[in-house]
């Protein structure tokens, strides 16, 4: 299984914290409230493990995950997916929109709000990564999915043993603490590229590059 050294892990977490920090700043401008987001940890696991991780967090059995995915290409290729348990997605949209979300599901307009939230967070994470690695990428517009974690991850076109870079996300708004994930589906060459870029970044940090 792909793994990073402690320093490489530290660097990656710091980069993503900067990314979600900027996303939180954008979101707080939308709601006019303090919004905080952080990435306490990252892990590299295969798709089957990723699905199990998400199912453990869902309030309802086997199902009900909301996902927003975007595809990125260029210097490397990845499918990035923001995921929350469905009931938490309702909570986030309700908090961001400031009105009661009446049904148990998101209406079409509310799904669009969820898409925008995904768009902000994913662009921020990948953008920070691309900037720090000084690479050029292009991205797609967000797509909304709802289903089991397995269905959402399969929709990204990956195989069961594809490596997924999982970010744990802590989202805090108006004293509501919500935990979610961002999954990056990466192929082997992208993973090695990532490791190489992180090391270049660390070398620059230590004045060696």
């Amino acid at each position: 299984m792909f793994a990073l050294s402690e320093l490489e892990n530290d660097a990656l977490i710091e980069i993503f914290n900067i990314g979600v920090g900027q996303a939180a700043s954008s979101m707080s401008a939308i709601v006019n409230e303090a919004v905080h987001m952080s990435v306490p940890s990252v892990s590299f696991i295969n798709r089957a493990e990723a699905a199990r991780l998400l199912d453990g967090k869902s309030a309802e059995p086997a199902g009900a995950i909301c996902g927003v995915s975007q595809h990125y290409e260029g210097a490397f290729s990845t499918e990035a997916i923001l995921m929350f348990p469905e009931d938490k997605s309702l909570e986030i949209v309700r908090l961001m929109v400031g009105e009661a979300v009446s049904q148990k599901e998101l209406t079409e307009m509310e799904q669009e709000a969820m898409c925008e939230i995904g768009n902000i967070i994913l662009n921020s994470c990948v953008g920070t990564l691309a900037n720090i690695f000084q690479r050029e990428l292009q991205g797609s517009l967000p797509q909304y999915h709802v289903g089991t974690s397995d269905e959402i991850l399969i929709a990204s076109g990956s195989l069961a043993d594809t490596v997924v870079l999982m970010l744990h996300i802590d989202f805090l708004l108006e004293k509501h603490q919500i935990h979610g994930y961002v999954a990056f589906v990466l192929d082997i060459s992208a993973l090695h590229d990532l490791k190489e870029q992180i090391n270049l970044y660390i070398a620059r940090a230590m004045g060696q590059a």
Partner: peptide, 23 residues
Amino acid sequence: RVESAIQQALYNNFPSLLSQTLN
């Protein structure tokens, strides 16, 4: 939000969605 979306497009090459619900 519109300005940050324009920045994302011009400098990062990323598209943005502004939903009616939030904007």
